[in-house]
Design a protein around this nucleic acid. Structure first.
Lengths: 312, 312
DNA sequence: CGAAGAGCATAAGCTCAACTACTCACCTGC
DNA sequence: GCAGGTGAGTAGTTGAGCTTATGCTCTTCG
């Protein structure tokens, strides 16, 4: 690590490069960052002096500028460095707020129903000093963004997760079951119904749920588009509609209320691949003792849950 | 990305934090970085003002300082950022030198013998404009360090690789074979000899080779320490000694010269787990087109090589 | 074809942050 | 209690980077 010109490199230089790449011009970037155009021009000049290469191609006149290859490569590094700084900032903010005993956990509805209550009970027994703040979101992508920004420490998620600065842990496989009204002929079969048989029936579907989209793709692969007569994001509503005879639903087992007398649950025996529920966290952020403990508790609770249905 | 105090953060702050952590005192860190003690003290004060937390515990007097929890967490982020900057620097240096057509590849002896000649021939036929610079090292760890510093673009390696900023690709499994003098009773057996039978014989071993250490651990696991009568890092020497009847050797198949009339090669049928040869590169560095092409060629050549011995 | 406009570069001046040099306050250990 | 080593504080100077103002280049349009 010789003390060469790279030590003169400043974060503002990288921020400026990114702003120019985003905005497409020196002037817009300057405006965005609250500088004058001249300042940005000088910053880029300094940056190019430091790395020794032209980073931005200025054709002159009102023609649009573009990043050189070196500029593009450096921009990727700059992005990574800024992301890492955000993670550091989030860690520091958490420590500053005295958050050693606070854990912000993201969930979505279908995982909330069965896993969360048990997990919270078990976790708060073993770690009463840790305050768990739950954040439920309809939009699953939002949860990932909050992880990336450091607004959440952990989140539940259906794996696999999109590429990003994430670390993941598989918790359990949640098989899909068919939910039908009491007395439905599909429930009377000795064998699990085929997808073809299911797709002929009216279906109650979900919105905003990638795991459910996945089911509909499976159904559509039979060659016949499923007839979705109603959509809701509330599992209770879906199950109520099934009970009322409006249609049937293909739901993850963990979301269905098995004590509901108006419906019957039919095992699909893997005809639709089980969804995988896991935990996701920011790969660059510090894992607090509380977070580690929460993960451990989640593993334990999910182990119980995956054994139970098999025994039942 | 609100323009808060974090934009005032400077790389020198992080470098200073790291220097203090390494040296254990403000003064030593200042000396190392070429500043006065006062400058370092002010830098840390500025850094603590930015993050809003005390990073270093100063007990006062000549008692040693220590990092607070926040300091340790921030230090890990700082290390990652500095590593990423080094990667960026290496990418820029490569571009500056007009290295689009140069590829620096690390190897070690045992992979050099069979794979490299074929690979270089095949690669230079398809990519004549790319200059490949080979760097062979006895010390395998040195190769990884050179990858990390950006002194190498790719290196061969026996997987798995130690944790670090690396990306790896498995190329082939190279099984171990027993090399014995012509006429050895072990070669006359109908079945592959057992480890117990091997360990009773005098062994020719290797130095400086983690893959070979692994073999000796396997042999020692029989309960009897192998009797290593000679060591050499040169495969030719080892094979020569076997041919001269000094002992026998357990070598990866790719390192042995099968045309040597003074020795016989005995298949061990997996009694010693095969070593895995792969390629390693820096996960944060830019992959040039030349590097991508080289990896492709390596995959193709190794596929051929792993099929051949099975057919032979 | 010339004027207008958009966009980056450059020059000059100013501000402020950071370094050096020096001093002080503090604690340990002999 | 004093010497030695450690970090903090203060004053002064230097320099990097910002703003303002201006210049240059290329395109567009009447």
């Amino acid at each position: 690590m010789e003390p060469d010109r790279w030590l003169g490199l400043d974060l503002r230089h990288l921020v400026a490069l990114k702003a120019i790449a985003d905005e497409g011009s020196f002037g817009k970037a300057a405006e965005k960052l609250g500088y004058t155009q001249s300042a940005i021009s000088q910053q880029i000049a300094a940056l190019e002096r430091i790395v020794g290469l032209r980073l931005i191609e200025r054709p002159g006149g009102p023609r649009p500028i573009s990043l050189t290859e070196a500029g593009q490569i450096l921009l990727r590094h700059a992005d990574a460095i800024q992301a890492r700084l955000l993670a550091a900032r989030a860690d520091m903010a958490a420590l500053e707020a005295g958050d050693a005993g606070r854990l912000r956990v993201g969930t979505f509805q279908s995982v909330g129903a069965k896993i969360i209550p048990r997990l919270l009970r078990s976790f708060s027994e073993t770690h009463p000093q840790v305050e768990v703040v739950l954040r439920e979101s309809q939009d699953e992508r939002e949860l990932l963004e909050m992880i990336e920004r450091g607004d959440l420490d952990l989140t539940f998620w259906t794996l696999p997760v999109d590429p990003g600065p994430y670390e993941t842990l598989e918790l359990l496989h949640d098989p899909y079951v068919l939910v039908v009204p009491v007395g439905s002929p599909l429930a009377a079969l000795k064998r699990p119904p085929t997808l073809k048989e299911i797709v002929l029936q009216p279906i109650i579907g979900f919105n905003h749920c990638s795991a459910m989209d996945h089911v509909e793709v499976q159904l559509a692969s039979t060659g016949r588009a499923p007839n979705v007569v109603f959509r809701s994001d509330n599992n209770g509503t879906v199950q109520g509609l099934v009970g009322a005879g409006v249609g049937l639903a293909v739901s993850p087992r963990l979301t269905v209320d098995e004590d509901d007398p108006s419906v019957e649950i039919v095992d699909l025996h893997g005809r639709v691949p089980a969804r995988v529920i896991g935990l996701v966290w920011h790969s660059d952020r510090h894992r607090s003792a509380a977070a580690e403990a929460f993960v451990e508790s989640a593993i334990a609770v999910c182990d119980e849950l995956s054994i139970e249905p098999a025994a039942a």
